[in-house]
Design a protein around this nucleic acid. Structure first.
Lengths: 353, 353
DNA sequence: CCCGTGGATGTGAACCGTCACAATAGTACA
DNA sequence: TGTACTATTGTGACGGTTCACATCCACGGG
């Protein structure tokens, strides 16, 4: 059994009674308004302490319309990455965070359902929705005019958003491989309806076209995974099964890179001598893989801070313009990439079933 | 600029006016009470739809005292693991979740601060606090009599809680290694003020004592990490630096196991031939390490479901008894462990700096 | 002595649902 | 025709905070 089931919270009026003043005076003291006599203030504060008075948030929300609660909407993939940073910065800015997961981010209906539940309670929304199926107006409608910031959407999208420049990140990765002499480069991308994955994929194709001769894009050496370890593993196996040769792989994130490394390892290929691998994200574990993974770092802490900061400024100051804040990733070179020596046994000979 | 800044939400009274009935009738329709004439009901529902009426949650909280919001308090370590499951099940049970991180879980003061902010808004708390410094009464006091469930605390703790039996899990791991013939077993534990880490560590010591002769506990081969990859790496290096021989390592979680594997790899030791490794958790990536990691699986989805289910039953039905629900982990044997052949080069010869 | 000024404090209404109770209409049955 | 009862609908107060406004008092200047 629970003990003394509900402890009755003291109210403004309770404190007023105890301090022998009106509730308004108590309110003034609590909200630090001027024009309260020092001895009255003391008496009130005393009462506040003994009764352990705290303003009732729900009542405050009801009258002021402000809850200091934000809602984070995340799509299942995007999990671990930006969440800790967002949580941390929300707290730092004085907000608490409701976290909701969205199963089907592509349908406006599921978003609507999600918002129904909490809508009147929250001051603004942060949406990690890498599936840009909803226009600004659609989102604004769903959010009932509440401020929102989209995290990780298309570069150039006309909405309040904070994004990494995926084209830039991919360029770093490709240039790195090309500089090492790699020509036949395979790709294990994320799901192509994910805008990040798409942007990187498209960038890779465009770069290959632009650098014709120095490297090439082979459609049969481009597989899409789902950002999970297992899909990296099977994608790598699939690449090997094609029998086509490649000396390096661009992988959509570090988790899939880990899976791919395992597959190559099982196939007897050495990394980086036989296959160079570039990951994406720079997860905590990437520095400790064997070999440590060359990857494109996305600074999720910055992403979290920028997103929250932007959202809060939209909430508190209506003058903030709609804009897209762009962050730039960084290439972290470790030991999973090396120059293509050409004399090593390459995939294509070994990889044949 | 944000567009038409705030969209005015329709209230019960607005709907009533439109449907030409009293707000009470609207309320009855919305809350599906009987005794409303069919045509009235239709008229009201029509008005509800055209005005897109939704009850104001804050007002509901104010009058009913129920918010259908739960608060999750997590200590930084315990991150990724139980969170997705808890989120999912909370939603499943009709609750939304406020997620708050706690920097210093050992001080009652920091908990109090955290709760102040949201206290009157939430129906109950879920605390992932593997630092059992607070008694049931202390916690109940902090929670102001609101129901709470502790996730991952000490086995046998007298509070509403859901835990894995860490002793059982560790026993599985140790028995596995002993059955494979390992005698000198090293340990990379989690931080020993963490009750999970502590329970496993203590179990290991007790088992070694009980099985005297068949395996042994060597204090200098027991290092505490912090559950992060990097600490597994340096702990493994430390083990090697002792110059003492060991043929297997019990690691506090899979992430540290990954770090340790890297360290052994760098030192030229093969896994499992030279060192067998047992992890803990069965993280998503563990099956894809090279070699795939033998580990003790904790079913976090079950943990999440049980925790939320328990909390909800405490909230909705005051008769639920205070109890501890115990879940049992499971040994997953993969390829990072093998029988000790004795003829292989063991650590101690190779490991010397 | 009166008025203006400003500090100190109090009153009433509003926010939006909820709930206990009141009121009205309508039917059934004696 | 009246009573009992039900189905349907309405009224009033309340929850705890906020805010605009009202009141009271004292003090200084004229």
């Amino acid at each position: 059994m629970m003990p003394d089931s509900q402890i009755k919270q003291a109210t403004l009026r309770d404190v007023a009674e105890m301090a022998r003043v009106s509730y308004q005076t108590v309110w003034r003291v609590v909200n630090e308004h001027p024009n309260v006599a020092v001895d009255t203030r003391e008496r009130v504060l005393q009462a506040v302490r003994t009764l352990d008075y705290r303003p009732h948030r729900a009542a405050q929300v009801l009258t002021t319309g402000r809850s200091y609660i934000l809602q984070l909407v995340i799509f299942e993939y995007a999990y671990g990455d930006p969440l800790p940073a967002i949580l941390h910065w929300a707290r730092e800015f004085g907000y608490t965070m409701v976290v909701t997961e969205l199963k089907d981010a592509t349908s406006a209906e599921s978003v609507r359902t999600l918002l129904r539940e909490t809508a009147q309670m929250i001051d603004g929304l942060l949406m990690v929705m890498p599936y840009p199926h909803l226009s600004y107006d659609a989102l604004a409608g769903l959010c009932q005019g509440r401020p929102f910031v989209v995290v990780n959407t298309e570069l150039g999208a006309k909405m309040p958003s904070v994004v990494f420049d995926q084209r830039y990140g991919m360029r770093l990765a490709v240039e790195h491989l090309v500089a090492l002499g790699h020509r036949r480069i395979a790709e294990i991308s994320g799901p192509l309806d994910n805008c990040d994955a798409r942007a990187r994929h498209d960038t890779w194709i465009r770069m290959a076209a632009d650098m014709a001769g120095r490297c090439e894009f082979d459609p049969s050496l481009s597989v899409a995974g789902d950002f999970e370890v297992g899909s990296g593993y099977s994608a790598a196996q699939h690449l090997l099964a094609t029998g086509r040769s490649f000396s390096a792989v661009l992988v959509g994130n570090d988790l899939m890179a880990l899976g791919a490394m395992r597959a190559f390892d099982e196939a007897g290929l050495r990394i980086p001598e036989d296959v160079s691998i570039v990951g994406y994200d720079d997860a905590a574990l990437s520095a400790y893989l064997s070999p440590p993974l060359t990857t494109v770092r996305q600074e999720f802490d910055t992403l979290g801070r920028e997103s929250v900061e932007y959202l809060v400024s939209l909430i508190e100051d209506r003058l903030t313009p709609i804009q897209q804040r762009v962050l730039y990733p960084e290439l972290i070179v470790r030991q999973s990439t090396c120059s293509r020596t050409g004399e090593h046994p390459q995939t294509g000979e070994l990889g044949r079933r």
